[in-house]
Design a protein around this nucleic acid. Structure first.
Lengths: 222, 222, 222, 222
DNA sequence: CATGAATGAGTTTTCATTCAT
DNA sequence: CATGAATGAAAACTCATTCAT
């Protein structure tokens, strides 16, 4: 049922130790912050869902705000940075005959990760809107991607419009972000998850980004 | 901090009448929601800043949430309606207009208003993540756009790819949303507001959406 | 639909004058006090149902409490005292072969009056529980009845147990009150209004009150 | 003012446990509801009199209404359970007991408790007029009586009229309710608490309910 | 007389936080 | 370390009452 991947990523090594209860608290906090927002998730409910006493939360986190910050940090450090690259290395190193194939693969790859982590994203988004440092982290996450390398490959094959990689990167990011955010995070009710919709989006992006000249034919330049 | 234009636009005609106090309440709410977020702005403080009794707020808005919705509706409409009035219709009904011009106008047209309302837009976005009514309000705003009509005209002139209007609408919305949200709401620090960036975006969208065939010449071009 | 009788009884002569609006206020107050109780009926709602402005209520009644008192007085003076005797004179002056017939007629008579005036009774009851003067009024109402006369007739015919009229009166009142109050005012949900139930009650009362000796045969004692 | 017995009876066994503070809250609530009525007794004042923080009340009772229900349940049960324990069962299981003895015990048994709880009973009655949950609670109280079992025994001994237990129950309840309510709750001023009055009532009920045939003698009477 | 917008004190309720066990 | 009863400040909301029009 799409049980999330991130739960296994909470630090449990003995260095960065985190007790079982702490892990349960963090998990419950992520869920509730993601479901109802920070302000509407009461510590009482978090405690209940975590199966601990309310006081226990405050043994570990002095204030509710600190719990939120801690949770945010955790998401950034242990989760986003991980799955941002999940499968991407593989993806960009494969050859693509058409830009469409690349973009399509990119989207599908992102979606598998995102669909199961909507709550996580919601927690990050609500925070990022008002916390500059978090934005910086997010941006760092975006850039750490293997994506730029993929773009270089596409440019080498003349499959993509000839713009500075940085600009291409931003344009793609912008497009993907809009699609993904509206469809899977903000308004799934209004932007349902259909193959048709995804195709329209990929088509548009493909036409928008592909090189006006014919791509370099495979096996000869002339 | 981008003192906004909307204050002069609060309905005061005798139809959609709004008392002086009501206007002060709305103004104070917009300011405070923007400054501290919805949850942290107390009705008491809103009342104080508006110079009215707390009860007065509840005379006009049954609940605090309704006040938020009302305020959100107001700026959403403000952004939309202003846009409509500027006569994008004119633009798209002109023959030989280019898709690029349309998209460009679509973007430029809104930016001033958006830039001036970033604070409240942030709040609206943040709350929309968790409040279904607000999502609905946003969606209503999206749909109230002149966009659909514009699209019909563009299709008639064969300036835009031949897809069902609904699909076109969603694709454009998705693209614009991503661009606007990242550049002006979420991460202006990383997506600066430069003419070049806007041009790249418009170019991409234009290529992505324009009809593969040449437009129907009105009377013959060659 | 059992529209109540009492509305026509509100004073409207030119002496005891009462404006149309006042009458509407009183009517609305009785309904709402009866439906939700004094404390839970807000002046706002009373005004709305009466179709007047909230301020208008306070033009006529300085406080909400005064409205309640006025309404109570009205119920007592113009209504209870009237319908307490409605049909009773007739009823007691008819001859009865059996005690059962008398009690049965008495019950049916009371019920026709009560079924349409539950709200009125509820207003009086909630008040009477805490207002001594109101209890006195109620008691006066009970005693002003033609019932004692009826009892004398029954005693003369030896149809009823030979106790002081006062005691008989109280016993009957007690019994009827319990039946009527539980069935029609307090718990109609649990004590439904069925012919069978009424019969059981009348049977019990009849056996409980009838003279142990055979009644005086009509036409001779020996 | 009839300082009540129930305070010692508040559950404190380890099963139905009730903390010291909870007991103080209940006590204060009973006093204040009785003194000023439900609506006029504020939770703030209840807390003050109980010597606890206002929040503590809501730890134990989610809403003020729930506090009322809980308190009502408590005294209803108190009256009922006390009665049950006094062993009316004994009485009715004795052969040759008379119906009169049963009814008399039924009445006397409750009176002390009722007299001591008039204040709260008034509140319960007043609120029951408008609060369905409270009616239900009252009805539950009625049904929890030992009455039904007693009736079976009486029927077995042919001491009582042969009607379905349910009908007997309702008839008796109706009668007792009228008597008790008028004499001890609503109008003690007009229905004084005299032995004579009680006797008249019991006589009437006895005649009204007893079996027309002589009771089955257990082994012979002569 | 009638209105209804405005008031503000008061009410119920929530909730992060503390602390004795 | 863990608990959860207790706290009390602050929140949203209600409502009888006033008053300028």
């Amino acid at each position: 049922m799409g049980k999330t991947l991130w739960q296994d990523r909470l630090p449990s090594g003995q260095e960065n130790e985190m007790t079982e209860k702490q892990r349960r608290i963090v998990t419950a906090a992520i869920e509730l912050f993601g479901e109802k927002g920070y302000a509407s998730a009461s510590t009482k409910e978090i405690a209940r869902r975590a199966g601990v006493a309310e006081g226990t939360i405050f043994k570990h986190y002095a204030t509710k705000k600190e719990l939120l910050l801690s949770v945010s940090r955790l998401i950034i450090d242990h989760i986003i940075l991980h799955f941002v690259n999940e499968g991407l290395d593989d993806l960009v190193s494969r050859p693509y005959a058409r830009l469409e194939d690349f973009l399509s693969a990119l989207l599908e790859n992102r979606l598998t990760l995102i669909r199961d982590n909507v709550l996580l994203l919601k927690v990050v988004m609500q925070e990022a809107l008002f916390q500059p440092e978090l934005k910086a982290e997010l941006m760092r996450g975006f850039k750490a991607t293997a994506l730029p390398q993929g773009l270089e490959n596409l440019k080498a094959q003349n499959l993509i419009v000839d713009l500075p990689a940085e600009d291409l990167f931003k344009t793609i990011l912008t497009g993907f972000f809009g699609f993904v955010f509206l469809h899977y995070v903000l308004m799934p009710e209004f932007f349902p998850d259909t193959a048709e919709d995804r195709k329209h989006f990929i088509d548009m992006m493909t036409r928008g980004l592909q090189s006006p000249q014919k791509p370099v034919p495979e096996g000869g330049e002339a």
